[in-house]
Amino acid sequence: MESGSVTTPFGRRPMSLGMLASQQLAEEIEPGISRNKWKLFRAICEARPALGVSDRALTVLDALLTFYPADEISEERGLIVFPSNAQLSIRARGMTAATLRRHLAVLVDAGLVIRKDSANGKRFARRDRAGEVAEAFGFSLAPLLARATEIEALAAQAVADRELLRITRERLTICRRDVAKLIAAALNEGAAGDWAKITCMFREIVARLPRAAGIEHLAAALDEMALLREEIVNQLETQTKTQQMHSNESQIERHIQSSNPESTYELEPAFETKQGAKSADYVDQRSGSMDSGLDSRAGNRERETADRSAGEGGSLKSFPLGMVLQACPQISDYGPGGQIGSWRDLMSAAVVVRSMLGVSPSAYQD
C-alpha cells in the first residue's frame, strides 16, 4: 500500500475510524517480514474469540487466502486478492452472495482485511507489458501481515487458556469424585462426624457451577472442593489412628495377661514344703533318664530352683489336684498309664510334655 494513502469504500458503505486505523496499521509492515498463510490462518482460528470473528467469517477468509498465489505472504509478492463474488462463493462452500457480503464486512471491521475498491466497485488487476500486476483492486491482506506477531501471541494465549481450562476441569472432576467417595465410605463405615452437613456443603459447591463454567468458576469451585476434601481426609485419618491405637492397646493387654510370671506357681501348687521337694527329686530323675544328653550343670540348677521353691512353699497358694486337671484336661494323656492320680504323676506328665516341646530343663525351671 502506498504510504499515506487512504482508501474509502465504494457505494453506500460508510467509512469508519476503525477502517482508517487498519489502513494506518497496514502501512507499518516491517521490511522483509513474511508468514506462511496457512499457519497464520490457523493462528487466527485459535485466536478467533479474541479477534471477534465468527466461524463463517473464517470460512470466507479461508476462501480469500486460496486466491493468493503463494504460500508465503509478503509485501514483495503483493498483498491484494481480487476474486469475483461468484468464484469466492464457490470456494466458500457455496455461500450465498448476501451472506458472503455480510461476513466480508465482519472481516473488515475486525481489521483482518482492507477493502481497496475501484471507481466502479469492481475487483480486477491491471498488468504491465511484462505481465506483472501493476495495480489491483479487491481485498488487501496487509493487516494480516502487519498484525502477524499480535495474532500469534493471541493464539498462544488462547491455547494456554484452553489447556488451563481443561486441566482445571479435570482436577475438579477428580476432587469431586474423591469427596463423594469419601463421604459414602464414611457413611457406610459409620465414622463419627457431621456427614449430613458435609454432604450439604458438597452439593452447594456443585450447584453453584453454571452449565458453561469458565475458568473463574472452575478455579473457585476447585479451591472450595479441595478444602472440603482435606477436611474429610483429616477426620478419617484421625479416626483411623485412634482405632489403631485402641487395637494395639488391646493386643498389649492380652499379651501381658498371657505372660503373667506368677501363673506358673498358680498352676503348679504342688511346690509345698515336703511334697515339692519330693516332686523336684522325681523331676530330676525323670528328666535325667529321658534327656541323658543334658549335662549335670542343668540338673543342679533344677534341684537348686526346686529347693528354693520348697523353701518358699509356705507362701504359695495350694490348689486341689482335681482343679488342676479340670483346667488342663489333656495333660492326663501324658501321665503313667494315660492317667494322673497324684501330684507325682502330674509332675511326670509335665516332664514328658516339656521334652516333647523341646524345652530345656533350665528354661522349664525359669
Rank of each mutant, 00 (worst) to 15 (best):
N234F: 10
S118D: 14
V233N: 05
Q157V: 07
I232M: 08
L209E: 09
I215V: 15
R162Y: 04
A156W: 07
N234Y: 07
L164I: 08
A186Q: 04
A220D: 00
T238A: 13
M225R: 02
E204S: 15
I252Y: 12
A186Y: 03
I183H: 02
E135W: 05
E204L: 14
V206Y: 03
L228F: 04
D194E: 10
A212R: 14
Q244W: 06
I183G: 02
L209Y: 04
R129N: 13
R229C: 12
S250H: 09
R162S: 15
R208P: 03
R208G: 15
N234S: 11
S118H: 06
Q157G: 07
A213V: 04
E230Y: 10
A148K: 01
R162E: 15
F202N: 04
D161C: 01
G138L: 02
I167P: 00
R176V: 06
F139A: 04
D194V: 06
P143L: 11
K241Q: 14
T168L: 00
T238L: 12
L145V: 09
R166I: 03
E224W: 01
R208L: 14
I174C: 07
R169E: 00
E231W: 07
E189K: 08
Q243Y: 10
A212S: 13
R229H: 12
A119T: 12
A158K: 02
S140L: 05
R147D: 11
A192Y: 07
A191P: 01
S118A: 15
L218H: 00
